[in-house]
């Protein structure tokens, strides 16, 4: 067990290094001169030289890479180019609002789609199942921007049921502002979740041991409660768990449309402002969170799943 833990932990080091290498080469090697992207094509040579010096782009590449690695390890990404804010503070401030939006949306989507999937799979092959399958493919196929525009324009602006955009200072204010984006987020993910869960449940319902149970006279309800629910949870939980790292990234579009001051909105803002240091820091930061959460889930799986214990 311990050897596994140590090995798994050490394995994230080359991955972290790889991510740093990819992000660094993207921002420092592949692209055009970041100073020119920042200032536009018509900037004077002195201005470009000044910005290059400020961002450390005038140093040799090896120096730049070492500097960047130091940023990654110390989590100190310098200052935003557009607003002069410390990026670390910016990220720390953004996590709260992002999680306030994504966590409720995530939990509600999971619960709702799981319940619907169980109901639908109970009636598999009958009209209610077929109809809902069509309905959820339709939901999946609509562009996400259409949901956001529809929600903001019809439900908030026209009907006045929700605030158009913003984020509050107190808890109840925040709930008031976040309700509509949470609802839209649920609608965005419901279709694909339900389809996946339904297939996992049906896979279990049609398996041999369930047929045996049915042949022995176990009622359909009991089969669901005692066997199917438990066993179909393995793929379902895996599917849910791999979404957890995305919670920190937030929803880029929802945050920017509803002016929620989170990580996703900041990323879009950085694109719009051509804020090179922020964009680089966001990419790095989210990837680190990603690597750490995969590490954590792998370890947890190892601890939880009894089948893993006898492996090497």
């Amino acid at each position: 067990m311990w050897t596994y833990l140590i090995r798994r932990f050490l394995y994230s080091i080359p991955i972290l290094f790889g991510v740093s290498l990819v992000v660094f080469s993207l921002f420092h090697l592949v692209g055009g001169d970041p100073a020119t992207i920042l200032l536009g094509k018509h900037a004077t040579a002195e201005r470009v030289a000044m910005v290059r010096a400020e961002l450390g782009l005038d140093q040799p590449l090896s120096h730049q890479f070492v500097n960047y690695l130091r940023e990654v390890v110390t989590f100190d990404f310098g200052k935003s180019y557009a607003t002069r804010e410390d990026i670390r503070t910016k990220i720390a401030n953004g996590i709260g609002p992002t999680l306030f939006l994504t966590v409720p949306a995530f939990i509600l989507t999971a619960l709702l789609s799981l319940s619907i999937a169980l109901i639908v799979s109970y009636y598999r092959g009958r009209w209610i199942d077929r109809l809902s399958l069509v309905f959820f493919v339709i939901i999946m196929s609509l562009p996400s921007l259409a949901y956001i525009l529809f929600g903001q324009f019809i439900l908030a602006s026209k009907m006045g049921w929700f605030p158009i955009s913003g984020y509050g200072a107190t808890f109840s204010e925040r709930i008031y502002f976040v309700t509509l984006p949470v609802l839209i987020s649920i609608a965005l993910n419901l279709g694909s979740d339900i389809r996946f869960f339904r297939n996992s449940v049906i896979e279990e319902v049609t398996s041999d041991y369930v047929r045996t149970a049915r042949a022995k006279g176990v009622s359909e309800t009991m089969i669901y409660l005692k066997h199917v629910l438990k066993n179909s949870m393995v793929p379902v939980l895996t599917y849910i768990v791999i979404q957890i790292p995305y919670l920190v990234l937030g929803s880029l579009l929802l945050e920017s449309f509803f002016s929620i001051p989170g990580i996703g909105g900041m990323t879009i803002e950085a694109v719009n402002n051509s804020d090179f240091p922020v964009l680089k820091a966001m990419t790095t930061f989210i990837s680190i969170v990603f690597i750490l959460s995969t590490l954590l889930t792998d370890v947890l799986y190892r601890l939880v799943d009894p089948r893993m214990k006898f492996g090497k």
């Binding site: 993207l26 921002f27 970041p34 990323t267 964009l279 989210i286 990837s287």
Partner: peptide
Amino acid sequence: SIPNILLLIAISYTM
């Protein structure tokens, strides 16, 4: 490990 959408944005931004 780099979320797809960020990789997409980063590449099309820097290119």
